[in-house]
Design a protein around this nucleic acid. Structure first.
Length: 269
DNA sequence: CCATGAACCTGGTCGC
DNA sequence: TGCGACCAGGTTCATG
């Protein structure tokens, strides 16, 4: 589930119940989930100072460390409801005066990291698309400097952070750009449209609590509504909402990709 | 520098 | 019902 809006939604949901509380311990049920530390490294009580999002990480700020949680494909983070551990529970966080915080993850790709601060993550991630550094000029300049497939570039977290397969497809459709375009060949007017599209799509999705499919929910039962707003992703064989042309699906940079060939033009050298 | 494919995992769906 | 093939919202690593 986890692109920027979904991760932000999880953060918004658990933050109020975690701030000021103490983590008493961490118990991994699938040890590989704890990527670079063991429960002993976090022995004793640790006060939770804040909970924020950076890129696709949920960051739990402690007094001397941060815990960085990455959901990857199927991770979920939520408070235990009725003392029944789900089959795919991978890590349990014990919190003082609180229900346990559960990390559940069917496919076991998710990882939890312990760092001193955000510097390592920051060094390997591009700007936040909803942050003040992601300007139209920044995008114009940096697309020009690269000679890469635009979809691969937007998915590259070291270039810009937080976008994933859904929101890249949506943004490229909205701005009329074929995903196999070469970044430096996209005309200025389209880059400006792309910048606007990325921001407005992410903002609207956050308002709708993100995108969730079928019964998948992460907020103790609630689910995101942005799936109803998707214009191109998952609409294979359905009519394009701009021109009625049939939406096709193919593979770009290893990912299932949806486009309207009529609306999205390929810009090459 | 860039593209591609495999690896990490489990489960759902589709066709026969 | 069963079985194999293929797919999945992510990231990293090796290879050409």
């Amino acid at each position: 589930m986890p692109e920027l809006p979904e991760v932000q939604t999880v953060v918004n949901h658990i933050r109020p119940d975690l701030i000021g509380k103490y983590i008493l311990g961490i118990e991994p049920l699938w040890t590989k989930t704890l990527n670079n530390f063991s429960p002993d490294d976090l022995s004793g009580k640790h006060k939770i100072i804040n909970v924020i999002r950076r890129a696709k990480f949920i960051i739990i700020e402690l007094e001397n460390f941060i815990l960085a949680i990455h959901l990857r494909m199927t991770g979920k983070l939520y408070f235990l409801k009725d003392d029944l551990l789900h089959k795919h529970t991978r890590v349990v966080f014990y919190i003082e005066n609180s229900q346990d915080l559960i990390f559940e993850d069917t496919r076991k790709f998710g990882r939890i990291y312990l760092y001193k601060d955000l510097s390592y993550i920051n060094s390997r991630h591009g700007p936040e698309p909803l942050g003040k550094n992601f300007t139209t000029d920044w995008l114009l300049e940096n697309l020009k400097m690269k000679k890469r497939n635009i979809k691969a570039l937007l998915l590259d977290q070291s270039f810009i952070s937080g976008l994933g397969n859904i929101y890249v497809d949506e943004s490229l459709w909205e701005s009329g750009i074929h995903p196999n375009s070469i970044s430096c060949a996209i005309p200025k007017t389209k880059v400006i449209r792309l910048h606007t599209a990325i921001q407005s799509i992410l903002e609207e999705s956050i308002r709708q609590l993100g995108t969730t499919f079928n019964s998948f929910s992460f907020l103790n039962g609630q689910s995101g509504n942005y799936s109803n707003e998707l214009k191109i992703f998952g609409r294979y064989n359905m009519p394009c909402l701009k021109c009625e042309n049939k939406i096709i699906k193919f593979r770009v940079s290893g990912r299932g990709t949806h486009i309207c060939t009529n609306c999205q033009k390929k810009h090459l050298k």
